[in-house]
């Protein structure tokens, strides 16, 4: 589909890839780091303030600093991807640690008594119970990622944000509005997707409410 002189389908694909891949990568990294913070108070005292500080750095600044750290070109989409992975990681590490903290001691004790050991306990008991908190964190990270991807357009990385920068240069408000609406729609579609995933992964919460 072409509009405003751009292949909109291509921009949408780039936008989704640049938002979703980093969010999932950030989640995968947050699981071990959050688990570490859950187990070791000393590690937590370093990890939590560090992730807070990373989350504090403005997106445009982080995207621009990436080439120096990664050795990528300034126009590489990897700069945006790694930036959003860092934000997601910083946001979710705390969620993971707190979700694991919140698993009732009686549940883990019962699981241990039934023969669950470290890895089995984590994957079969603790993580499933942490799913609602994880999904809540994932949704926040995902919604902000869809909005932050557009910032990459300022340094030439294509997404629906390209409609905003190009629309500014051409003094074309409709083009900018199309970029905003497209970005919002994508954010909400994936938000609904994560919500649905959370429902599928926690069948017991539906059983309890009788749905």
């Amino acid at each position: 589909m072409r509009a405003f002189g751009y292949d909109i389908g291509q921009l949408v694909v780039a936008h989704v890839a640049l938002a979703v891949v980093p969010v999932l990568a950030g989640l995968l990294l947050a699981l071990p780091v959050g688990f570490w913070a859950h187990r070791s108070p000393a590690a937590r005292r370093v990890i939590v303030p560090l992730s807070g500080a990373l989350y504090t750095i403005p997106s445009l600044a982080l995207i621009v600093v990436m080439p120096i750290i990664l050795g990528t070109g300034i126009l590489s989409p990897v700069n945006v991807g790694v930036t959003l992975t860092i934000y997601t990681l910083a946001l979710l590490v705390r969620s993971v640690a707190e979700a694991l903290d919140a698993v009732p001691g009686t549940v883990t004790t019962a699981a241990v008594a039934m023969g669950y050991r470290s890895a089995g306990l984590l994957f079969a008991v603790q993580l499933p119970l942490a799913v609602p908190v994880l999904i809540a964190g994932l949704r926040v990270a995902s919604v902000s990622a869809f909005s932050l991807v557009t910032v990459g357009a300022l340094v030439g990385i294509d997404s629906l944000g390209t409609l905003m920068t190009s629309g500014f240069e051409q003094d074309y408000p409709q083009m900018v509005a199309a970029g905003i609406v497209g970005s919002l729609v994508l954010a909400f579609v994936f938000d609904a997707l994560w919500l649905g995933l959370g429902r599928v992964l926690t069948p017991w919460s539906r059983a309890r409410t009788g749905v």
């Binding site: 869809f146 909005s147 557009t150």
Partner: peptide, 12 residues
Amino acid sequence: LRALPELGVLVL
């Protein structure tokens, strides 16, 4: 409002 892209709001 968290989902609103800041860049788009500014430009518009």
